[in-house]
Design a protein around this nucleic acid. Structure first.
Lengths: 228, 228
DNA sequence: CATGCGATTGAACTAAGTGCAATTGGAGGC
DNA sequence: GCCTCCAATTGCACTTAGTTCAATCGCATG
C-alpha cells in the first residue's frame, strides 16, 4: 500500500505548498481555507482530512520555509563570514515570505526546520569562541533582529490586502496612509529634516541598507565582547 | 457646548483604554468588538460611533502605548546611557503590551506616539556622532531588535488564548506544545546539549537576559563603528 | 461484481467585523 | 413645562471565515 492512490488526491505537502503561495501573496491574514481549497481544486473542507487546523497549517508552512535557508559551511571560513551568510540567508528567506515574521508573533513555531537553523547558529557562535550560554544569546540576538526586520514588509502586505477588501484601490489608500504618516513626522524637527519634501513618503519604511547596517553592528559587537 | 453630556456616554479615549486592557490580556487576536462592548457596558456597535474600524482602534491603541515610554534626558549623560535607557524603556513597554509587536506585523503604526520616539532616538544617535543617514539606521536597528524581542512573548499570549478557546485547559496544552518543541530539539546535538532533561521545556522561550545581551552587542557595535 | 474504507463534498454551526434603520434621552428654544 | 432635534445607542442582519458532520464517492481488493 505504498503506491499512490490513482484518484487525484490531496497530500499534506501539496496543501502546505499552496498555502505558502497564498501566504506570500496575501500575508498571514490573507490565508483562508476557502481560497486555499479553490487553489487546490477541491472543497475547502477537504483540507481537514490532511491537516488538523489552520494553526497547524501555518506551523507546517513556517517550518517548511525555514528549510529554504542554506547552512553555510563552517570549515574553511571564519565564524563572522558564516554568521553573516546565515543571517543574510534568513533575511532573504523572510523577504520572500514576510508572513513568517507575523506568524512568530502569534504561533509558536519551533519545529525541525527552525531547530536545524538554531543548531547551526550555535555551532557558528561556539566556533567564534562564545561559551555555551553566550552562544545561545548571540544566536538569539541575530534571530530576533532578522525577524524584527521582516515586520515592516509584512505589515505592508497585510495592510494592502485589508485596504483592498471593499474593492477599493489598495495602492492609493496605502499611499495615503504613508503620506499621512509623513505629515505627522513633519511635526518633529529631526524627522522633518530627513523628509525632504521629495522623499516625504519614505518615512514609515525602513531606509535602504538598514539590515546590513544592523547586522554589521551586531557582529561588531560580538567581536568586541570576544576580545575582552 | 464644551460641557460633557450628562448621559453616560462613551468617548474614544475610554474605548482605547479598554481596548488596551483587552489586548494586554488576550493578545491582538483576542480583541473583538463584542467583548470590548461588554467591557464598556454598551453594545458592540456603539463603538463605531466613535471609532471608524477595528484597524483604526488598533492604530490608536498602538500610538497610545508608545507614549508610555519615557524619553531620557540628553544633557548630562553620554549617548550610550541614553540609548540604553530608551531601548530598555521600549522593551519594558513591549513587555507590558506584547501585542504591539504583533500589530507591527500587520498594521502601519506611524502616529505621533511613535514619531516622538523616533525623533528622540535620532537625537541620541546624532549626539553619539553618527551622520544623519547613519543615525537613522542605528535607530532602526535598535527599534527592530526591540520589536523582534517582543514577538516571543506575544505569541505565547496569542497561542494560549487560542488553545483555551474550546474550553480546554490552555496551560496544559501550551506545556504540551513546548515539550513537543523540546523533543524536536533533542534530535540536534547542540540543542540537546543545552536541554538538560530538567530544563527541557525551556527551548522555545528566549533565555533569561537575552535582551540585555543583544542590546549591549548592538551598542558595542555602534561604538566600534564610531571609533573608525 | 460486491465490499470497504480512504478521501471528498456540501450543508450548517459558530465567531466576529460592520452597516443600517429604528430608538432613546437629554439640551435648548418657546 | 413641553416640544423638538440630534448625538449616541441599540438590535438586527449581512458577510467572511474556521470548523464539524453526515452523506457520498470511487478505487483497490476479495
Amino acid at each position: 500500500m505504498l503506491a499512490a492512490m490513482s484518484r487525484d488526491t490531496l497530500t499534506a505537502d501539496q496543501i502546505v505548498r499552496a498555502a505558502i503561495e497564498l501566504l506570500d501573496g496575501e500575508g498571514l491574514d490573507g490565508l483562508n481555507m476557502r481560497s486555499l481549497g479553490k487553489r487546490l481544486g477541491s472543497a475547502a473542507t477537504a483540507i481537514y482530512w490532511h491537516i488538523k487546523t489552520k494553526d497547524d497549517l501555518v506551523r507546517l508552512a513556517g517550518d517548511a520555509v525555514w528549510r529554504e535557508v542554506e547552512l553555510p559551511d563552517l570549515d574553511g571560513t571564519d565564524w563572522r563570514t558564516a554568521a553573516a551568510a546565515m543571517a543574510t540567508g534568513m533575511h532573504a528567506m523572510l523577504t520572500r515570505h514576510p508572513w513568517l515574521g507575523q506568524a512568530f508573533g502569534s504561533h509558536l513555531l519551533y519545529g525541525p526546520g527552525k531547530a536545524r537553523l538554531d543548531d547551526h547558529s550555535l555551532a557558528i557562535y561556539e566556533k567564534a569562541g562564545f561559551a555555551a550560554a553566550d552562544a545561545d544569546q548571540a544566536a538569539g540576538t541575530v534571530f530576533v533582529f532578522v525577524l524584527g526586520s521582516a515586520l515592516g514588509p509584512a505589515s505592508q502586505v497585510s495592510l494592502t490586502r485589508r485596504l483592498g477588501r471593499n474593492g477599493a484601490d489598495a495602492e492609493r489608500l496605502l499611499a495615503e496612509t504613508v503620506s499621512r504618516a509623513a505629515e505627522v513626522a513633519m511635526e518633529f524637527p529631526r524627522l522633518r529634516e530627513r523628509l525632504g519634501t521629495a522623499a516625504a513618503a519614505d518615512y514609515a519604511m525602513a531606509p535602504e541598507g538598514s539590515f546590513e547596517f544592523g547586522l554589521r553592528a551586531i557582529l561588531d559587537g560580538f567581536e568586541a565582547r570576544l576580545a575582552t
